[in-house]
């Protein structure tokens, strides 16, 4: 930019002075051609802001809400002990509402109540009846029978067992549950997708 032009535009007295100018567009502003001016100022170009069709947007939102409501399950969430990593299996069934016996690396819990130590079972080194588990399950069975005197007792219990627990502990708890009147035992697992046939 020449000194005269600069003075004319910004009103500077000294053409060589380095001063701070007001921010703004600078690129190709000094080109004295109409088509360049039009191009720079966007004359005749498509507008930058676009309008959104709200009908399609609301339809999409409503369909999403309906889908999520249909797949929403308030009762399907099972409480799994956070210290337990469940194994995966393919040939599985739906979970039932039954007493939960959780077995993690340290302890055994019946419906969240501590009922014995896993280490203690492993230290003995042979299968044994876990007395606390037996007592709690027996109490549960008696309570169920007092509430449902006419119905036959289903004898179903669900075992949440950590995938790294030894078979000795699993068999001990399994046998204890059977002794307490729960012969139909299920192991809780994570569902693994079946491969395509």
């Amino acid at each position: 930019m020449s000194g005269g032009a600069s003075k004319a535009r910004h009103g500077h007295h000294d053409p060589h002075a380095h001063s701070i100018h007001k921010p703004g567009r600078r690129l190709m502003q000094a080109v004295p051609l109409n088509f360049v001016f039009n191009k720079v100022h966007g004359v005749g170009a498509r507008s930058v802001s676009a309008s959104l069709n709200l009908t399609a947007f609301i339809d999409f939102l409503i369909v999403t809400v309906i889908f999520l409501l249909m797949s929403f399950s308030a009762s399907g969430e099972m409480i799994v002990d956070k210290n337990i990593s469940l194994p995966q299996a393919e040939n599985v069934q739906e979970v039932l509402d039954a007493p939960m016996v959780a077995v993690n690396g340290n302890q055994v819990l019946v419906n969240g109540t501590p009922a014995g130590s896993t280490r203690a079972i492993e230290d003995v080194g042979r299968m044994q009846k876990v007395d606390e588990v037996f007592e709690l399950l027996k109490r549960q069975r008696e309570m169920w029978k007092s509430f449902n005197p006419q119905k036959p007792f289903p004898g179903v219990a669900i075992l949440q067992v950590d995938e790294n627990v030894s078979a000795l502990v699993v068999k001990s708890v399994f046998q204890t549950a059977a002794f307490a009147g729960y012969p139909n035992i299920s192991f809780m697992v994570r569902r693994r997708g079946k491969p395509a046939q």
Binding site: V65, A89, V95, F174, N184, I185, F187, V189
Partner: peptide, 25 residues
């Protein structure tokens, strides 16, 4: 609608648990 979608997405259960049967005869 947005808040409903967010609520449903947050409360959705993504891990499905199942059971495998055994029988203590």
């Amino acid at each position: 609608l947005m808040v409903t979608i967010m609520f449903l997405l947050i409360t959705a259960v993504w891990v499905s648990y199942s059971r495998i049967n055994a029988n203590a005869q």
